[in-house]
Design a protein around this nucleic acid. Structure first.
Lengths: 135, 135
DNA sequence: TATAGTGTATTATATCACTTAATACACTTA
DNA sequence: TAAGTGTATTAAGTGATATAATACACTATA
């Protein structure tokens, strides 16, 4: 429930998922939404570990996956930086979106629901809320 | 990869998820799609365990959650049966669909994607395949 | 009344993912 | 030289998952 802030990064950590996955997801999201700028310096492993009250190894694990995804770059002795390449962010975003969508379509298929069923549900939902499904 | 069949139930078990979750998901799906009829007898705990090469306790765990969901009923000394109530199946299906959809919308939001972005992706995908996104 | 087949409960054990802890090393900057 | 980077290693603890071996109460049936 408690939000943690470090630089332009926000974190909201709970116990519903592995800690390293939550760090990955929330950094990803910040980059995808442009909340943290390309080329920006990330908090150091130790600094983030202390802030989020977790072990440096746990943060390391998250940082390593972010680098594998091409979203961050490491510079020896200097630190971790958000990639400066908008293309990498874009392609990662597209890949991840495709994965999410495919997974979702599988779930709908397992319930025997069609795409029009889904559209109907979403349009109902967006009418009962303000602003609709757009971010 | 190997499909297992017992009565009108099909199972495809791998090691990507906990075994009991896979049993739950696949029985749910069979009921939601009407592949197994309302009121039908389910395989016994021991029978399914032997077929799927897992421990009876693991199958039991799955069966208990299916009953909690209202999708099955147990009769002492007789066995486990699919519920005879179409209403229960419908309401469960709606609940689960809502959960899936909300989760999906959260994922899209975390990537900064709008509902129209998603529709565009899905319509592209259904054009490059046969039959479209309907089941 | 036996017997076999139901679901259920218990106890023990094993494995694996996740997490923490403590420490050390190589590199870069100041 | 000192402080701050990422990284690697070893050890330990916890909880979820799964198996194994039994045992019990209930029901249908021969």
């Amino acid at each position: 429930m408690e939000d943690q802030q470090v630089g332009s990064l926000r974190f909201n950590i709970d116990f519903s998922q592995p800690l390293y996955e939550q760090v990955i997801d929330q950094v990803r999201s910040s980059i995808a939404k442009g909340e943290i700028a390309l080329g920006d310096k990330m908090p150091s492993v130790r600094e983030l570990a202390q802030l989020l009250k977790m072990n440096p190894n746990t943060v390391m694990r998250a940082y390593q996956e972010l680098e594998r995804d091409g979203l961050t770059e490491k510079r020896r002795g200097q630190g971790t930086y958000v990639t400066s390449s908008p293309e990498r962010v874009q392609s990662f975003r597209a890949d991840l979106a495709a994965r999410y969508i495919d997974n979702f379509m599988e779930q709908m298929k397992s319930l025997g629901l069609s795409w029009s069923d889904i559209q109907q549900y979403v349009s109902q939902k967006s009418n009962s809320e303000q602003g609709g499904p757009q971010t």
